[in-house]
Every structure is written in structure tokens, then in C-alpha cells.
């Protein structure tokens, strides 16, 4: 289970991580993209933190929607519409709920994935953020089914997200700026998959508290 306070803590922690890893994400993006992923994500999450006092009293669904809207209008790169849609879609499935069950958490990630797929017209295996969020959710679902607590499931989910990041090194990018590099994109880790893995890292650290 997760509370609204935990959701807010998670948002703050993800923002910290985007600031902390800004250079790393930018370096990854410079290798295969336009080199702005770290800058864009940290700018977007910084804007979220600045606006947080205006919506933190609202329900979890409204908070997630506002995070998404802020990202959409401040990130500037493709990660804005993608992360923005993910947060907005996640918010829509927890309408009116301030305490989130295991199933709610799974549904949020599931809807986020659906949102990212339809916005980016992408599928798994194209060297994108889907390559970390999808295995992470699969792992979380499998862990819950096997009887793990949501906390343990998220811990394992984060590991699956990083395994997904490693996997992106082995495949060709067919979406986004990196697709112009074709085979030269092999060997490089996808920046979007990496920032998504940091999202799960933030979720794990909140879950373990």
C-alpha cells in the first residue's frame, strides 16, 4: 500500500535524482541523441517541485495529473510528452483514492505504459524508456503473484528496470534521434530507459522506508 504522503515523497525524490544524475543522463544522450535528456528532465522536475505547493493539498490523482501537465509544458524534449502522459495516465486510474493498494500501483504503471506506447508509437525492444518500465512492471506483477509484499516487489522491479537498461546496450534504436545512428547506437545505454530506472529507484527507496 502507498499513501499520498509517500507519493509526494516519491515525486520529490525522483526530482532529486534527476538533478543528481543530470550530467550522466546528458552524457548518455550526447552519445546517441541530442544531448538534452538530463537537462530537460532536471528542468521539468525542478518546475514540478516549484509548483508542488500549489497542488500538494489535492488528491493523489490531481497531484499526478499536475506533475504530468508541468512536465509536458516545461521539459522541451520528447521526454516531456512521454513522462507527462505517463504521470497523467497514472493519475487517472487512482481517481478519488488517497491510499493506493497493490493493484492500484500495478494499474498506475500499466496505464503509464499504455500512455507512453500510444504517445511515442513505440513497443518494447526499440531502445526506449519502455525497455526499463515494462520489465519492471512485469517483475512487480510476478512478485505480487508469488506472494511478495509490494515493497519487495518494487525492490525486484527496480532490479528488472536496471536489467532492462543493460539490455538497451545490445539493441539498435529505431525510435527518436538515436534511430539516425542505426547500428552505431549499439553499445550505448538508452538515456530514457535510464531515467525511468531512476524513477523505480526512487520508488524503491520510498517503499523501503
Amino acid at each position: 500500500m502507498a499513501t499520498k504522503v509517500e507519493v509526494l515523497d516519491f515525486i520529490r525524490l525522483f526530482a532529486d535524482k534527476m538533478t543528481e544524475h543530470r550530467q550522466e543522463l546528458t552524457d548518455l544522450d550526447q552519445a546517441i541523441g541530442d544531448g538534452d535528456h538530463g537537462i530537460n528532465m532536471s528542468r521539468g522536475m525542478k518546475a514540478v517541485i516549484e509548483k508542488l505547493p500549489t497542488f500538494e493539498e489535492k488528491g493523489t490523482d490531481e497531484i499526478l495529473k499536475s506533475v504530468g501537465m508541468t512536465l509536458v509544458s516545461t521539459v522541451g524534449g520528447a521526454s516531456g510528452p512521454l513522462y507527462g502522459t505517463a504521470f497523467m495516465k497514472a493519475g487517472m486510474v487512482v481517481k478519488g483514492k488517497d491510499e493506493l493498494s497493490e493493484q492500484d500501483i500495478i494499474n498506475m504503471f500499466q496505464e503509464a505504459i499504455v500512455g507512453i506506447q500510444s504517445r511515442g508509437k513505440a513497443v518494447k525492444g526499440e531502445k526506449t524508456m519502455l525497455d526499463s518500465i515494462m520489465p519492471a512492471l512485469d517483475q512487480i506483477k510476478a512478485s505480487i503473484e508469488a506472494g511478495d509484499s509490494i515493497e519487495d516487489a518494487i525492490v525486484k522491479g527496480e532490479q528488472a528496470a536496471w536489467d532492462g537498461v543493460e539490455f538497451t546496450k545490445t539493441i539498435i534504436a529505431t525510435k527518436g534521434r538515436a534511430s539516425y545512428l542505426g547500428e552505431r547506437s549499439i553499445g550505448h545505454q538508452d538515456p530514457g530507459a535510464t531515467s525511468m530506472a531512476y524513477l523505480f529507484q526512487a520508488a524503491k527507496e520510498i517503499a523501503k522506508k
Partner: peptide, 11 residues
């Protein structure tokens, strides 16, 4: 032009 220009326009 490309990339997020398409996604931002759609949104």
C-alpha cells in the same frame, strides 16, 4: 521538424 515536435503538437 521532428521528434518531440510531433508529440508536443499532438498534445
Amino acid at each position: 521538424d521532428l521528434g518531440s515536435a510531433v508529440m508536443s503538437s499532438e498534445m
